[in-house]
Design a protein around this nucleic acid. Sequence first.
DNA 1: CTTGACCTTCCCCTAGGGGGCAAGGTTTAT
DNA 2: ATAAACCTTGCCCCCTAGGGGAAGGTCAAG
Lengths: 135, 135
Amino acid sequence: MRIGEVAERAGVSAKAVRYYESLGLLAVDRHTNGYRDYDESQVELVREIRSLGRLGIPADDTRPFLDCLVSGNLRGDDCSESVATYSATIDELSTRIDELSARREALRQLRDHAVMRGEPLCEFSKETTSVSHDS
Amino acid sequence: MRIGEVAERAGVSAKAVRYYESLGLLAVDRHTNGYRDYDESQVELVREIRSLGRLGIPADDTRPFLDCLVSGNLRGDDCSESVATYSATIDELSTRIDELSARREALRQLRDHAVMRGEPLCEFSKETTSVSHDS
DNA sequence: CTTGACCTTCCCCTAGGGGGCAAGGTTTAT
DNA sequence: ATAAACCTTGCCCCCTAGGGGAAGGTCAAG
């Protein structure tokens, strides 16, 4: 099977498949004319990389799942290393979410203070102040 | 003033200062020997870029704040364009936080299902199952 | 004169590919 | 046989926000 068919069946671009290979995630045979030659199991591997990518797991961190599949397991997460990767990714996401939430809160304060300085001391501002949903 | 002093006083690296210039955020004079020559106000601009960066506002999006300062305002957010940038950044952060939260929830489900498959049908598993704080 | 601190430009690196180009292989239709 | 159409190959540049380092110019002090 050539790269175009693999890409289509896995739902990614041929460029992405070559990129995964460049990361060492796929060991690809070559035809006599230099074309890459894939088999069915590698379509599954590309799908695994892709679906983990959608979950925010970087391609470089998918090796446990790929090894798990290559070892004969039906699912990439049927190995303890894969589950550990899940947990590590969850922790990283939590850290990231906390950071972004703190930034958002800081920005809201800055914005509110700026708006207050911009509309200073309007005694009857209740009528003109927007009460709509805040962003 | 040369770049090293600007960098030190603004709390960034000289590389960062050159990078800001390459983005068109700073208009920098040159000495006769080719060295960049800065004045006090540009230290303030670099500080503004840096502090906005810490809030998650990309350097490229700091122009309203810099223009506001250059126009003579004491604060970079004393202009409506700056406040609009605050709001836009808040919205982007909210979108990003929602995405990450959804990913985290999906990962938790996958992890929990994987763990259940890995420890199948343990009738007296209550004693051995960890009750500690989940990650 | 030389050392050391500081400056300059230039190039490669990050994650995950996207876009594009020139060259060459394959297949099908005429 | 050949042309069109499509596929594949490698290669290079692009994105963040600079970091690291090379190769070399400039200046003050010893």
